[in-house]
Design a protein around this nucleic acid. Structure first.
Lengths: 141, 141
DNA sequence: AAAGCAAATGAAAACGATTATCAATTTCAA
DNA sequence: TTGAAATTGATAATCGTTTTCATTTGCTTT
C-alpha cells in the first residue's frame, strides 16, 4: 500500500490510510456519502472532500471503478473482484455482481470488428431483485 | 402518435409534436441540450423545460430510454432500434450501437438464476473508437 | 535533526445538470 | 362554448460533484 502510493508520488496520511482500508473492506458498492458516513464513525474530523478525493485516487490507482446506474449517484466498485456484471434493483438500489466470463469473448469480437480499443465494459441488468419482487406481489394483491 | 398520447391522457401541443418528431428523426443519442439546440433552430420560443419534459414523456411512453455513460450527461436512446449495446468513445463521446442478440440468452439465464425480474439491460464497451485511435497514434509518435 | 517543498487536508464556495414551482396559456371533452 | 386538466416557459431550487484556497502535513535533502 505505502509502496504503491510512494511509487507514484502520493503521500500516506492517516486519513488516506483509514479511507483506503475502510473502502477496501466494503462488500457493497459504496457511494461517496456512504463511505463518508462510515469514515465519520471512526474519525469525525475527516472532511467530505478528502473522502471524495481519495475515492478518485483509488480509481486512478486501478483499485476501483466508478459505476453509474442512472440514479444520479456514483458508486465505487472494487476491481479486485475481477470482471463482472451487475444486477441493479431499481427498487431497493441493491447492486449484485455476476460473472461475465462467458461473454467477454463476444465483446472482444464486437470491438475488433469495429476497430475499437476497449478500456472497460459495463454489463448491467436492471429490474427487480428477488426480495422486492416478492414484496411487490404481496402488496399488489 | 396522437392516439398513443390521447389514450394515456396526454395532450398534443404544437411544441410536443415538434419535439417528438425531431427527436424521432435523430440518428444519434441526443442529450437534452443537443435536442434543445435542434428545436430552437425551428422554433426559438420553445423552452428548455418543455424539451426536457417531453423527452421524459417519450421515455414514459416507451419510445426511448435514458443512457448514462458516466460523463454526467443523460442521453436518450430510441428503443425502436431494438435491443442493442453501445460502444462509447471516451475521447470524442461518440456512441455507436451493436447487436447483442447473441448474449441476451445469457443475460436471461443470469436473471433467472437469481430470480431477478429484468426490466432492461445495458451493455456498454468504453474505449477509443477507430478515429480517435488513429489520431492518438499520430500525435503520440 | 531541521529546512524546504510538494502534496494533502478541511471548509466553503462554485459548478452543472436535473427537477420543481408557478402563473399564464392551451387542449380537449362535454 | 365552456370548464377542468394538462402544458408551457421562465425561473428558482436541488443535489451530487468538483474546485478553490489557506493551512497543515509527509517526505526528501541537507
Amino acid at each position: 500500500m505505502r509502496e504503491l502510493l510512494k511509487n507514484k508520488g502520493f503521500k500516506l496520511t492517516p486519513q488516506r490510510e483509514l479511507i483506503f482500508s475502510i473502502f477496501l473492506e466494503q462488500r457493497d458498492h459504496v457511494s461517496v456519502d456512504e463511505l463518508y458516513d462510515e469514515i465519520r464513525k471512526l474519525d469525525s474530523s475527516i472532511g467530505y472532500s478528502t473522502v471524495w478525493r481519495n475515492l478518485k485516487l483509488i480509481c486512478k490507482l486501478g483499485l476501483a471503478r466508478e459505476i453509474n446506474v442512472g440514479d444520479g449517484i456514483t458508486r465505487y466498485d472494487q476491481v479486485t473482484h475481477g470482471p463482472h456484471g451487475h444486477l441493479f434493483c431499481v427498487k431497493c438500489k441493491k447492486l449484485v455482481e455476476f460473472s461475465v466470463d462467458k461473454i467477454v469473448g463476444f465483446l472482444d469480437q464486437v470491438a475488433e470488428d469495429k476497430n475499437f480499443q476497449i478500456e472497460s465494459f459495463k454489463i448491467e441488468i436492471q429490474g427487480l431483485c428477488d426480495d422486492c419482487r416478492a414484496l411487490n406481489e404481496k402488496t399488489s394483491v
